[in-house]
Design a protein around this nucleic acid. Sequence first.
RNA 1: GGCGGCGUACCCAAGUGGCUAAGGGAGAGGUCUGCAAAACCUUUAUGCAGCGGUUCAAAUCCGCUCGCCGCCUCCA
Length: 484
Amino acid sequence: MRIYNTLTAKKEDFIPVDPGQVRMYSCGITAYDHCHIGHARSAIVFDVMRRYIKYRGYDIKYIRNFTDIDDKIINRAKQEGISWDEVARKYIDEYYRDMDSLGVGRADIEPKATEYIPEMIEIVKGLIDKGYAYEMEGSVYFAVERFADYGKLSKRDLDDMMAGARIEVDERKGNPMDFALWKASKEGEPAWESPWGPGRPGWHIECSAMSLKHLGETFDIHGGGADLIFPHHENEIAQSEAFTGRPFAKYWVHNGFITVDKEKMSKSLGNFFTIKEILGKFDAEAIRFFLLATHYRSPIEFSDEQLREAEISIDRYYTTFLRIRDFMAQDHSVEKAGSDEKTLDELLSRFPDSFREAMDDDFNTALAIGTIFELLRVLNKYLDARPSGQKGVALVTRSRELLKEAGGVLNIFSRTPEDWYRALMAKKAITLSEGEILSRIEERRQAREGRDWAAADRIRKELEEKGIILEDKKDGTGWKVKIS
RNA sequence: GGCGGCGUACCCAAGUGGCUAAGGGAGAGGUCUGCAAAACCUUUAUGCAGCGGUUCAAAUCCGCUCGCCGCCUCCA
């Protein structure tokens, strides 16, 4: 496997610190509002990395945190008139609701910042003892000049940073770039006891404390959105490496942004779409497919049109699965070859390698999806000749297994075609019930039997206007939801 | 101002030195069909923002130009 490492700005061979064992940490959310599609991208990208690493035979321990204390949470609590911990709890629940629908699995450990206050205090104390941090009026700051490697992740030079150009300078700090490890709490704010008086942790320290506790001083993969590179991840490196004297994370991976009109989707610009809004119009699987159809480091322009195309792609997959099922159910007493049997056979032989090579190359899910659709095309062509017999059963069974395995790694294509159509009926607000559709199909069957094509076409047209497409096959009529 | 990224067909999107430049959508033509739909076939980039250069060989490396974006403040 090769992974692009932000730290070295190169794709590198992936060699875990401990052979066969992977330790991965990704930065989760600050629980103060509903998640938008950008949060979904990050969560899905790391979910797929985790699944693929496991698929490749590694034992993986995956941690994803929640920031449950922070200025934004405190402000939100004031707005909503509830306590800060109620805000955090509420939005963590909402997070799970969103992620569960998107097929994002739970991490092995999902620590919350406030559960690690003693560990954080220990690190802050250690950093003061080692001369990397100083206390000032109840707060503690990390002195960036003391850490020689400061800037190595974000490729910045302290002198060039034009500190103060865009930040409010606190004149009392040793260097304007010094950041808070521990913040003194103001009257009425949530506070924990510390050697420096009542206060709360700075933002960055929680990840250092939680990763150290669960993954050790040095671990393999640390990820998050590209906007976390500076200052968050840069500061994590400074704190952690200054404290332990050991390298922190070996591979740093960062996902690209979702854009709207070419601009980064963000809370401050207000150009964001929440996951729930999008789920109101599109199926969760389409969202997941849409996000995985582009490489994780590239920007993705958000658009309804792209989501619709994702639905069409998924529909193509499930339509093929219905064909597979029809084929398996038919009579196989006669051996009859399909079209291009050799092409299918050869493709099946190299498919696992193609898929794996794509994913091995820095988790190239876009290319991996391409291999899936290539197999669908060849399989469809094979089935077009209406083959039968044991050779065919073997080839089609193999195709089905490989497709399901690949889909499983990406956690897409895992439903039945029926579940897909039912979900689509709900999203597209189809007013007909399945029973009504079937009875109309039966009426039409009788009309067709009497060669009353006008009546048959009328029924088909009527259903299409209500969003249902009919497909006449040799042994009956199937239906599907129209995507438009 | 500093650092970084991107620009591939009508749209989306892989490809970062060498086979016919993946895959999806859309369009056109065709096979199949009572007619459709689905599926399949053919077709749509002698071409990869532009101009130079390196090389036997470049979308891929180097330089310049143009355009777009990101980070440098909370941010996935």
